[in-house]
């Protein structure tokens, strides 16, 4: 057998082994001190199912790129920052309604600043810089600086934020409450890979 014939075979064998051994022994692991690890196996500690607080405020979150939507519940509040969680453990972090982070979506938004956008909103529009941070596959933080312009057609409560980065542009939209100025619905950019996140009030809550 030669190199070029043997290696694909070997990879194939490894693959089929991985495929047919998807934790068939997980049941053995009754004793917490005994761990059965097969491919990707982590049998001793399956991730705990997420139970969302039943009485917490909720929003409807949509991931347009994946064509999915679901509830997220408020799980933490620190000053103007709120944290929302979906029942699959995905979290969304908002600062005054502005998206400043996600977890569990794959290419997450690690952090974004909200202060400059908040100031522009208070002023009814403007141009400013915003920093977005992502974590790359090497687990390093990658900083992306965006030049953004916020506009609001007169007589409306809808803001449009157009941001330009070295990699392209994205457009965020915010609908605000005419009385309080709070953001009540939005479509905000997460990352090039994850696309946009829609946040809307839950109809009957």
């Amino acid at each position: 057998m030669t190199v070029s014939r043997a290696l694909p075979l070997l990879i194939g064998a490894a693959l089929s082994l991985a495929g047919c051994m998807k934790d068939p022994l997980a049941g053995l692991s009754r004793n917490p001190d005994i761990k059965v690890e097969l491919f990707g196996g982590f049998a001793g500690t399956p991730p705990a199912p997420v139970t969302l607080p039943p009485d917490a405020p909720r929003l409807v979150a949509s991931l347009y790129q994946r064509d999915i939507a679901g509830d997220v519940a408020l799980v933490a509040r620190r000053g103007t920052v709120t944290e929302w969680m979906a029942n699959d453990g995905v979290t969304i972090r908002l600062d005054g309604g502005i998206l400043v982070g996600t977890t569990g979506l794959g290419r997450d938004l690690y952090a974004a600043d909200a202060a400059s956008l908040m100031a522009a909103m208070a002023a009814g529009g403007g141009s400013y810089a915003r920093d977005f941070r992502f974590m790359d596959g090497e687990r390093r933080i990658v900083l992306t600086s965006a030049e953004c312009t916020l506009t609001r057609p007169t007589g409306t409560q809808e803001y449009t934020e157009l941001c330009r980065t070295g990699q392209g542009t994205f457009t965020n939209r915010f609908q605000t409450d005419p009385a309080t100025g709070d953001i009540i619905a939005s479509r905000q950019w997460i990352s090039h890979e994850a696309g946009y996140l829609g946040l809307n009030p839950k109809p009957n809550s």
């Binding site: 969680m85 453990g89 977890t103 569990g104 090497e138």
Partner: peptide, 14 residues
Amino acid sequence: NPRVAPSTFVPGRQ
């Protein structure tokens, strides 16, 4: 590329 993860971080217990 080792600098590009093949699988993205899976949601689990946050």
